[in-house]
Simulated scan of single mutants.
Amino acid sequence: MPNTLNPFELIARRWQPSARFVERAALATVVMAVVIVVTGGAVRLTESGLGCSTWPQCTPDSLTPTAEMGIHGLIEFGNRLLTYVLCAFIGLFIVAARARAPRRHSLTRLGWAQFWIVMGNAVWGGIVVLTGLNPYLVAAHFLLTSALLTVCVLSWQRAKEGDGEPRDLVSPAVRQLSWVLVVAVAALTVIGTVVTGTGPHAGDAHKVHRIPLDWQEVTQLHVDFVYIVVGLTVALFFTLRAVKAPPAPRRAALALFAALAFQGVVGYVQYFLSLPTLVVGLHMFGSTLVWIAVLRVFLTLRDRGPVPAAPDAPVDDEAAEARPAATTAA
């Protein structure tokens, strides 16, 4: 009896995607993760968090919103439907990574990690609705989406590099500084969710429980951490210049500084204009840019060799020789 092929093997026998296609599929998941963050923010900012009163259905008697629910039901249900679009892009990345030869188990594992994070966050979102937008659960919902964005960025980076043992391009001290920067941005993000949980945009027009902290004091703590992150970014950039790091990390540090500058301007505008919804939405978008940028800074500080070539593809010796050499520890 012949061996039964699974669907992925059947696809791999008939389709051989290029390395560029796999990379773009990975980038598409990053874009969709950002879209989910922004549209999730739109649900809260338009007071549509309870537009669908239950989960997994929209109402106890209907899977979809009814005319009586108005625009809030459409916005909340539309955000739920985007989860399926996100899963479609993740599925494309998994299939492309699985079909390409030689098979890279690291990429397919990252793709499945994305899928299960989305599934877990969908259930968590349902719990958020069933608990009436509990602010602690809402904060965790956003952080789970940030975890998804992290895996998507890592998948994108891994799709552009090989599977060799990571080689540092800078000294261990510089790597440690980049670690501190990543942790500082993560802390900044967590504090931002607390600001949201204490602020006026609760997600629904009716009274919703808020985190019992002073909003202005939490906001000031958030601003303090912004200054810490900006200082660490400037320090890392000049350190990279001093140690003559490759161009990619220095460009990534500049991109992070630009994202922080954009986020800082938007943050001050929203504060002095009493948190207009559009500007708050831009601030949420800016938070994704900052997180992507800091992850790219960290990931460009090591090299894992070129992308494995397909069995029938010529080896580009010149491109391999042009890759930056690892820097020995100081």
Rank of each mutant, 00 (worst) to 15 (best):
P2Y: 06
N6A: 11
F8M: 13
E9K: 09
L10H: 14
I11V: 14
I11M: 07
R20C: 02
R20Y: 05
V38S: 02
V38D: 05
T46K: 02
E47D: 14
H72F: 06
I75F: 00
G78I: 04
L81I: 10
G91H: 03
G91C: 00
A101Q: 12
R103M: 13
R104Q: 09
H105N: 14
L107I: 04
T108Q: 09
R109W: 10
Q114G: 09
Q114T: 07
N121I: 15
I127R: 07
V128Y: 02
V128N: 05
T131D: 06
V138T: 06
F142P: 03
L144A: 11
T145Q: 07
L149Q: 12
E161T: 14
G164V: 04
E165Y: 13
D168R: 10
P172A: 09
R175F: 14
S178T: 04
A184C: 12
G197R: 05
H209N: 11
L213A: 13
D214H: 14
W215T: 15
Q216P: 04
G231S: 07
G231Y: 01
G231R: 10
L236F: 07
L240G: 01
K244F: 13
A245P: 01
A248W: 11
A253P: 01
A255E: 06
Q263K: 10
L282H: 03
G286M: 02
T288Y: 07
L289K: 03
W291Y: 12
A293P: 00
V297Q: 03
D317W: 12
